[in-house]
Design a protein around this nucleic acid. Structure first.
Lengths: 206, 206
DNA sequence: TGACGGCCTGAACACTGTTCCGTATGATAA
DNA sequence: TTATCATACGGAACAGTGTTCAGGCCGTCA
């Protein structure tokens, strides 16, 4: 036999080429600038072919983001299970999260800055939609905070509330720097981020 | 004469009707769901007529947001010049900002959550684009913080950095609650907001 | 009455995501 | 070798979008 295997391999290969082409457009020009026709042109197939591999544009982009977000979650988990102090762990996690957003602005934007109703009927096979990706990253972040709760250095009563609060705070810097990178007269970026981390950790200390 | 006056009045009236119709669609369905054709249908004019009154869709929406944001700035200014303590002023300002965002999600979203490059060539007559609206609100917020700097209760070295940091923090809650109102398992909204304000103020105290 | 000028429209352009139907290819079965 | 059949794919079309532009209507003024 081997023929069905080869077919499957070829199919998988085209699928990868679609993702690859779409990713390149997506990373450099953002979600709205990516069109099915441009992707098709890039891979030298017709637009309708893409629909044999992905349900729709949202589905395609979700798969693109999934891969990238897995890296973030992995990085956060690595930090959490490192030998650092609870305080250092948390700070590293927050910093890694922000850096991830700033280095992958389009991935971050599409996941956290596009209203959920716009993803309304993204294929449910992607398990609950694109947020799931972000929510997993949030879980890792909460793990970092749980470590802090056990440390006497901190005073954290409600981990869940605190974790959500910290998340919204770092999302604030990240998303605003992505959305308004130049039009707003920001102070030096590094200073803004580090000051934010200082204050967040400070507000959590006993 | 009076005829040119009447004409001008009628022109202004149609302009208002356009804004009114667009606002209704915008508030209930958001930016992308508003189409020039639907607005035109609502006011019983042709789509091209709208372009005699507004340069393009972005220009129209900017004018819609301008009106609403003026209210926010006014509210913040009122708080800043009230007789409250510096601490209360700041807290009230932050709370007002968040509430404004949650009560006008589409206005807020379009101003702060749409990447600046998407507004690239919005009519420059709207003085630097739609951010200007938000930046003015930020100014008021910074005024609230300056009041705190003079109070011995607080320890604020760099007002500009601190103001920007506080802004990103409250933008974080506001925008995430707008973007993911239901898909994420939030703790009780009021609890999240108040806890955030507690921590922000706490991190600023001497 | 005729000309001017402002207001408005219909049609078109260039896009978008998406669907559907016909076709061609190539592997399998007779 | 021939016939069958599923699968992969492409072209054209549909229903939208923002935007532009030539032309027509109509009131005002000379």
């Amino acid at each position: 036999m081997g023929v069905t295997e080869r077919r499957a391999r070829e199919k998988e290969e085209l699928r990868s080429r679609i993702i690859e082409a779409a990713t390149e457009l997506f990373v450099h020009e953002g979600y709205t600038s990516v069109s099915m026709r441009r992707i098709a042109e890039k891979i030298e197939y017709s637009p309708s072919t893409i629909y044999l591999y992905f349900k729709d544009k949202a589905d395609l982009v979700t798969h693109i983001c999934a891969e990238t977000f897995r890296k973030l979650t992995a990085a956060l988990d690595a930090i959490v299970s490192s030998g650092e102090s609870a305080s250092n762990k948390l700070r590293s996690c927050l910093r890694a999260y922000i850096d991830f957003g700033l280095q992958n602005p389009n991935h971050y934007y599409v996941t956290f800055c596009v209203p959920e109703y716009q993803w309304k009927d993204v294929s449910p096979e992607t398990e609950g939609g694109i947020y799931q990706l972000g929510i997993q990253a949030f879980q890792s972040l909460r793990d970092g905070l749980t470590a802090c709760q056990r440390s006497p250095e901190f005073r954290i009563e409600d981990v869940e509330t605190t974790a959500q609060m910290v998340w919204t705070m770092i999302h604030g810097v990240t998303s605003l720097l992505i959305t308004l990178p130049t039009q707003f007269p920001w102070v030096e970026r590094e200073r803004l981020i580090e000051t934010s981390l200082d204050h967040i950790l400070r507000s959590l200390r006993a």
